[in-house]
Design a protein around this nucleic acid. Structure first.
Length: 229
DNA sequence: GCGACAG
DNA sequence: ATCTTGTCGC
C-alpha cells in the first residue's frame, strides 16, 4: 500500500491542526465499494498501559460479509504523541501504518475505533488513516467527540443522524437491543449509508462490531503478554 | 473564564 | 486507554 500524503508525525498541535485542515480537502465521500464480490475488512486497534509509552497495535483481517478471520498482524512501538482529544490519529496511526505497509493482502475496507469526519475539523482517525492508505475507511466510536443526536428506538438497527454545526456528520446506531448506540461516521472513500449498512452487518450479536471486538481482544492479549519489560 | 473532550 | 467490584439478565 503506497503512501502519497506523507507528513511528519513529530509535530506540535498547531502543526497537526494545519495538517488536518490540509488533508481534509483530499477526502472523497463518493467512492462506491464493489458489491459484486466478497470484501476483506480490516479492524485496527491500539492498547497500552497507564504511565507507559509502549503502544501495542493490531490489525485483524476478516472476510465480509462472512466475518471469518483471515489474518492478524501486530506491531509494538513507543508513543510519539500524547492523547489529546481531536488529535488521536497522531498518536495511533504511526504503529498502524507500520502494519498496513507490510500487509501483502490489503483490505478493501478499514474499520476504525474512533471518529471519521465527526470531528472538530472534520478529520478524525478514520479519515486520516483512510486517506493515507487510499482505502475506504469507517469510523465507529463508542462515545461522542462532537455533535448531537435525537433519541433512538431501543430496537436493534435503530438510527439517528449525528448533527454538528447544522451538518449531518454521522449516525448513532443501535447495534444491539437496549444498549447504548455506537457512532458511525465516514472516514474516506465511502458513503454514510454504506458505512451504516456495513457496521450493522458486522454486528450480529454484540454492541461492538465483530471485527473491532476481535481486534480489541487480540491487542489486549498482546499487551498482557509483552506489556512489561 | 467555563465546560466538553474519540482513545 | 486501563483498573475494579458488583449487579442484572439470557
Amino acid at each position: 500500500m503506497e503512501i502519497y500524503h506523507k507528513h511528519s508525525w513529530k509535530v506540535s498541535t498547531e502543526e497537526a491542526k494545519r495538517i488536518q485542515l490540509e488533508l481534509k480537502s483530499h477526502l472523497d465521500f463518493h467512492f462506491k465499494i464493489d458489491p459484486s464480490r466478497n470484501q476483506i475488512i480490516a479492524a485496527a486497534d491500539i492498547s497500552y498501559n497507564r504511565n507507559d509509552d509502549n503502544l501495542f497495535a493490531v490489525v485483524v483481517l476478516l472476510s465480509y460479509p462472512d466475518l471469518d478471520v483471515i489474518g492478524e498482524y501486530t506491531h509494538r512501538c513507543k508513543a510519539q504523541f500524547p492523547y489529546i482529544p481531536g488529535f488521536l490519529s497522531f498518536r495511533e496511526i504511526p504503529p498502524l501504518l507500520e502494519i498496513f505497509n507490510n500487509i501483502q493482502n490489503p483490505p478493501n475496507i478499514i474499520l476504525c475505533d474512533g471518529q471519521g469526519i465527526a470531528h472538530p475539523r472534520g478529520f478524525g482517525l478514520a479519515s486520516h488513516l483512510g486517506l493515507l492508505l487510499e482505502t475506504p475507511a469507517i469510523g465507529c466510536a463508542k462515545s461522542l467527540l462532537v455533535g448531537d443526536y435525537q433519541n433512538l428506538a431501543s430496537s436493534k438497527g435503530s438510527t439517528s443522524p449525528l448533527k454538528y454545526q447544522n451538518r449531518t456528520v454521522g449516525m448513532a446506531i443501535r447495534t444491539r437491543e437496549g444498549v447504548k448506540p455506537v457512532f458511525v461516521s465516514v472516514g474516506h472513500k465511502i458513503r454514510l449509508q454504506e458505512a451504516v449498512k456495513i457496521v450493522l452487518r458486522c454486528s450480529p450479536k454484540y454492541r461492538i462490531p465483530a471485527p473491532l471486538r476481535i481486534s480489541h481482544r487480540k491487542v489486549n492479549d498482546l499487551r498482557k503478554i509483552f506489556g512489561r519489560d
